[in-house]
Design a protein around this nucleic acid. Structure first.
Lengths: 124, 124
DNA sequence: CGGTATCCTTCTCGATACTG
DNA sequence: CAGTATCGAGAAGGATACCG
């Protein structure tokens, strides 16, 4: 079958790698971590206190994922007891704009969405 | 410790309702459904074929969520057998820009992310 | 065609306890 | 302080069968 490029002008599609990256970076805890670290670098327990109510396990997982994807940096100071600081990377700050766009969208459209929900829930 | 309101100029935070809305609308299948319906209205089984490889259950769930949140419209024609068409709403199209922004971000930064992953995976 | 209902497996996530 | 390890409950999601 010879496709003649009729779909050439279509918008790009979400492929598996894109999807996977978004999943790693837009999940519940990661977004809140990014928000916090955009404000200022912070230590593990500072983040824990700042994000209500994340468990150690979930926070660790989110930080590792973000670190692996190059969004945050983990800086260890080998004092006693040891200090670990997390800070956002340049790559991470590019996510901040996206975060703002997401937040902006929800803010602008929340009222419409809520009306739609009421309509939907009523007619059931 | 007396906070003097120094955080007054801070960026808005993701609250639970915002978070919830994003979850309902940015999940794996919903994004692909929105992509499809942005191109053209489609019927249930058309969507099913267009999105590899979604199960009936997952597709139904995604469509119901999107419908409830006002992103897609379900149009039933009572023929025999009955025909159901799904189409994107004006509210749904506002999501399209966001989708583009997400896709653009992943496209631009994918290479950096992959380098970061390799670096991380190597040093373990 | 366009679904629902049910079962069953997988994965997530919190709670808890322990460590360098 | 900054985690790791382990367990169990619950939710997500696929496979299958059936219905108007």
């Amino acid at each position: 079958m010879q496709e003649t490029g009729l779909a050439a002008s279509e918008r790009p599609r979400i492929t598996a790698p894109h999807r996977e990256l978004l999943d790693q970076v837009l999940d519940k805890w990661s977004l809140q971590v990014l928000e916090e670290l955009c404000e200022q670098p912070q230590r593990f327990n500072e983040l824990r206190r700042a994000i209500p109510v994340v468990t150690q396990k979930s926070l660790t997982a989110a930080l590792r994922r973000l670190e692996r994807n190059g969004m945050v940096e983990r800086v260890v100071t080998s004092t006693r007891p040891l200090a670990v600081q997390y800070r956002i990377t340049p790559l991470g700050t590019t996510l901040q704009e996206l975060l703002d766009a997401l937040l902006c969208w929800t803010t602008v459209n929340m009222a419409d969405v809520e009306r739609a929900r009421e309509r939907y829930d009523d007619e059931v």
